[in-house]
Nucleic acid binder design. Structure first.
Lengths: 226, 226
DNA sequence: CGCCCCCGTAACAGATCGGTAACACTCCGT
DNA sequence: ACGGAGTGTTACCGATCTGTTACGGGGGCG
């Protein structure tokens, strides 16, 4: 379940937002001034923040800026009162992702929230670790210990498939379909060759593999110890 | 949290200002003569200065002038007593950004403080550095070492995208969407050509790029070493 | 114990992809 | 209308990747 932090000092507005978002299946945290909002953002790491502009103690801009300064990447939606529109550009500059102007329809706010969370999920950092290796999907990078290991496109896609399906037996057909494509024309031995080069790159001892295991007559299985 | 320096010799006034600004979430430094104020400004680099005009040792004008002489750009609000208005022009000429006349309402002073700080942030420099290059988004300027390098609009937007998403694999589609627009009609090889010209402009050795890396079958990745 | 099948692996040739230069086209401002 | 800058397209080349083949080894089963 996704968590949303609402920072809003007007109790009525806060109540309304909270009820609505909870009804739509979100977990809701609330804060009624900038300081509390900032603390909640830093400690609870919500998935998204609704941030009122005018707040006691620390104003919305400042909260936004400080959150970004802490390198927290969750999306922020600014709630601005009508007449504050001139400040919108500033809000976006400070690292907000979107804004809605009061009075707004709860439907619109929900739509924007959904959109942002979806966008966020799709660019989420994807990092898989096994042994001393680290496969970073978004950076398309494999690191072993401290050094980066170069992978060709097919090697990368094959390893990606393995780490995403750990402990599962993968037949040559499955692998061929998922990595090479359903209309692949490659002979089945091609896979073996790529497994060998992968083993050479990631296994401590390529002749006694601990990550990519051979399943005789079947295919392979990626099964890192712990 | 933002820091404000108050330079004021009247203890009552100082106390009142300090309490108010601290209550509103600012960190407050205080100095009760011009000399101490100047030192505090130079050493602590506050985000904004409230500067009384009549001060022991060095007067407000002089402090203001000396601060600007040191090329410090933080906003300065002059606090002038009624009857000193004729000197306001002088103060503004010396580099003050605003003034309030005693007696003033604390609310007005807070409003002006907020406004100045916001204006300051919105014009805050957006500068990305990598190697000996410096990309200034707001000035739309690329400098390498001492000399400015001319970038065409598309080149600039492409580089901007790269520096804003460091270490992330960017597919040709993504790049096309974000730089050329979702309805772009350009062929995918167009990107390559622009990458080449960018590399020629920013890479120490364009044939062995260290900033813009090629990801075969995917696209590119901007990944400056450290 | 020995055969056979399957897999590991090296070597190689062909395919593919990106770098790049040359060219064409479109806007501008003069 | 002309010239220049910016932009997009194409073609060629070289580097890298990929698929195939062949050979060798090892495990399982008779």
């Amino acid at each position: 379940m996704e968590t949303i932090l609402i920072v809003e000092d007007d109790p009525t507005m806060l109540r309304g937002l909270k009820d609505n978002f909870e009804f739509h299946g979100y977990r809701v945290l609330a804060a009624d001034d900038g300081e509390a909002g900032l603390n909640a953002a830093l400690n609870a790491r919500p998935d998204l923040i609704l941030l009122d502009l005018m707040l006691p103690k620390i104003n919305g801009y400042e909260v936004c800026r400080l959150i970004r300064k802490e390198k927290l990447g969750m999306p922020i939606i600014m709630l601005t009162a009508k007449g504050e529109e001139s400040d919108i550009v500033l809000g976006l500059n400070l690292g907000a992702d979107d804004y809605v102007t009061k009075p707004f329809s709860i439907k619109e706010l929900l739509a924007r929230t959904d959109a942002l969370l979806r966008r966020m999920r799709s660019t989420e950092l994807e990092v898989y670790r096994f042994g001393d290796c680290e496969l970073d999907i978004s950076a398309r990078k494999l690191t072993r210990g401290a050094e980066e290991i170069k992978l060709s496109p097919k090697e990368f896609r094959l390893l990606e498939l393995f780490v995403k399906k750990p402990g599962r037996a993968l037949s040559r057909d499955e692998i061929l379909n998922l990595v090479w494509g359903y209309d692949s024309i490659s002979g089945p031995r091609t896979i073996d060759r790529f497994v060998t080069t992968l083993r050479n790159k990631i296994e401590p001892d390529p002749h006694n593999p601990v990550y990519i295991h051979t399943l005789r007559e079947i295919g392979y299985k990626f099964d890192p110890p712990q």
